[in-house]
């Protein structure tokens, strides 16, 4: 018996145990390095997002003297509410904050009341023109507010609705209505139709089935959409500054007085406007993808 000889090319690979081990270890190490670098990247991006917020918050919660100090400390100077108090006591700030809240709540109410039936219709009925209407609503959701604000201001002046809090709320409701309808529709669509059918079988009328079964299930989603409207309205500045003069909302007031104000006012104002957005993300987190994810369908 002669030992089989192989040409070099097809020599069977019989790795030794040690070599196998080393290979496995190397693969493990490479994997660990990859995981670690992903974590580092994830944390780095999180710092990129959070650092500016931290900086402005540390300024808002310090004394005006610390705000003007140089060089500034990255770690917060002694905690103080003086800068925020100074901001809130500036003339027009409390008023404009109240205006902002009124506008945002009104916009929220209008857009929710309109969007719930519309969203339900899109989610539950198949009717001629449904796709066209959906597409139309989709296409106006990105409609530039800059384009609408100028003519609306002129129309509002003519109708005697200029510089009124409720006119601005109506405009904000219009801006968010397309998004709200689509979000509400996707929320309704996620409520199983079988539940509604069961309610009908057990003797509910259609309205009762909606009121008792569908609406309670959809309520968290509708609330999220409403909060979205609130925040968009709270943030909106272009239409606000065009449509109001004496009844300015907070961002419009801040923007209007920006070039005449010092850093303590600006930083405290920046932080103050930021607060609702930080809470907002907590409330809508489950519906993040309902709001922006379904955009291309």
């Amino acid at each position: 018996m002669t030992e089989t000889t192989y040409p070099d090319r097809i020599k069977p690979i019989t790795p030794s145990a040690e070599r196998l081990d080393a290979q496995r270890r190397r693969a493990k190490l490479a994997h660990a390095v990859r995981r670690a670098s992903i974590y580092i990247l994830a944390v780095a991006i999180a710092i990129w997002i959070l650092l500016p917020i931290w900086l402005i918050a540390s300024m808002a919660f310090s004394t005006p003297a610390d705000v003007r100090a140089f060089p500034k400390q990255i770690l917060p100077s002694p905690f103080s509410t003086q800068t925020l108090e100074f901001f809130l006591n500036t003339q027009g700030i409390i008023n404009s904050t109240i205006n902002s809240l009124v506008v945002a709540v009104l916009a929220l109410v209008i857009s929710t009341l309109l969007a719930v039936p519309a969203g339900y219709a899109i989610a539950r009925y198949l009717f001629p023109g449904r796709d066209a209407i959906r597409l139309g609503i989709l296409s106006v959701r990105a409609f530039p507010v800059v384009v609408l604000a100028v003519p609306l201001a002129v129309v509002f002046i003519r109708l005697g609705m200029f510089d009124k809090v409720h006119s601005l709320a109506m405009m904000h409701a219009a801006l968010t209505l397309p998004t709200t309808i689509l979000v509400v529709a996707s929320v309704f669509a996620s409520v199983p139709y079988e539940l509604e059918e069961a309610a009908l079988i057990f003797g509910c009328t259609r309205a009762q089935a909606f009121w008792r079964i569908v609406l309670p299930l959809a309520l968290p989603g509708i609330a999220a959409a409403a909060i979205l409207t609130f925040v968009l309205s709270w943030n909106e500045v272009f239409a606000a500054i065009l449509l109001t003069i004496s009844n300015r909302t907070l961002p419009a007031q801040i923007l209007y007085t920006l070039d005449k104000s010092g850093d303590p006012f600006k930083f405290a104002g920046g932080f103050f406007m930021l607060v609702p957005s930080l809470i907002f993300i907590f409330f809508i987190r489950r519906y993040l993808f309902n709001m922006w994810g379904q955009i291309n369908k």
Binding site: N235, I254, L255, M273, P276, S277, L278, F280, L288, W292
Partner: peptide, 9 residues
Amino acid sequence: IPLGISDLA
């Protein structure tokens, strides 16, 4: 988080 932050802020 920045989703809810205005361009002014």
